[in-house]
Nucleic acid binder design. Sequence first.
DNA 1: AGCTGAATCCTAGCACCGCTAGACATCAGA
DNA 2: TCTGATGTCTAGCGGTGCTAGGATTCAGCT
Lengths: 196, 196
Amino acid sequence: MSIQQRRERDRAQRHQLIIDTARELAEAEGWEAVTTRRLAERIEYSQPVLYSHFAGKDAIVAAVAEQGFAELAARLAAARAAAGDPPGAFAALAGAYCAFAYANPARYDAMFTMASELPFGTADSPAALKAAFAELAQVFGRVADAAEAEAFTEIAWASLHGLVMLTRGGRLRPGLQEQRLDLLVRRLLRESPPAG
Amino acid sequence: MSIQQRRERDRAQRHQLIIDTARELAEAEGWEAVTTRRLAERIEYSQPVLYSHFAGKDAIVAAVAEQGFAELAARLAAARAAAGDPPGAFAALAGAYCAFAYANPARYDAMFTMASELPFGTADSPAALKAAFAELAQVFGRVADAAEAEAFTEIAWASLHGLVMLTRGGRLRPGLQEQRLDLLVRRLLRESPPAG
DNA sequence: AGCTGAATCCTAGCACCGCTAGACATCAGA
DNA sequence: TCTGATGTCTAGCGGTGCTAGGATTCAGCT
């Protein structure tokens, strides 16, 4: 019995090791460097071991994405806890969202660009996805009319996502991220520009 | 001399044929179906012919992207010509932008997701890129203060891009694209919700 | 018309990819 | 100590982007 438990524990550890190694390799050298051969070499096992844990490479990317959503949810929750009134919380979450995306580009790509078949908004969505979206909705819905709360959450999220993607793609003028984020937040909140 | 001209003309035609075939194949079966072998088969030449026209597959994708920007610029110009006052033109361009993205997803992916090394905002950017961005800036800059015109153009563009990407990725509730786009436009224009 | 040099094209193959069948080694339990 | 099951690895499949080198075609000259 204890032997069985030890085996399952070791297996779970190796499972997580694969996910962590894939994420680290992607973050260091980009996802194109994450091949099953290099990944197997890094974890010091052969390729078939990967397939005893995951159905394929896509499943490994999906696992990285799912844990990325969990991490994002945690960052958003922390930002919410530290924020004040609804507009301030909205700005804080927007900043935390962008900070996460810029700090973990490979993870963010796994979440949004690569894992396109992760079920979203359905009953069988991973809990981490629901948690991250719930964090956004909880704060974003508070700065919109109730009838528009869901739609506003979606467009605010989409705007942040687009800002992240175009910025990272070198499509926007460099060095002005903060100004753009500030302007976007003010427009979404329908605030007038600050005096002066 | 005339023979030389005919050869150059044939070569230019084949160059364009490669780009069109790649785009059509991607639009029909996705970019993962666009392999150099299938592409060569479609144009009825062998693979090395592709490399006599382009440095590699990435260059073919970049060519599709560049012509996509030219097409987008044309659509935006048409929308601008048909629009009225600045706010109306802003809404019209936003609609035209999304319509283009939804109608040509593979081309849009080539422009924004795959061709990440297309030079943007620099002197050696392809003319089509400058033209498309200029179309956006011309209309978007008119609904913002002069000091904010460039930043506003960027965040509006980014918001549209994010809306397109999340919608296409199945991340947002289906069937409500128009409501979301309308809400986004109103927020960016700092308009109040319509009465009733 | 027939030859020649150059331009063009294709065949075959490289290293790499994701993935897997089947041989091999290891280890818990009788 | 033996045995069966579990776990792992070696080797290989079909596919990818890309390219070297031989074969072919063709324009221009005698």
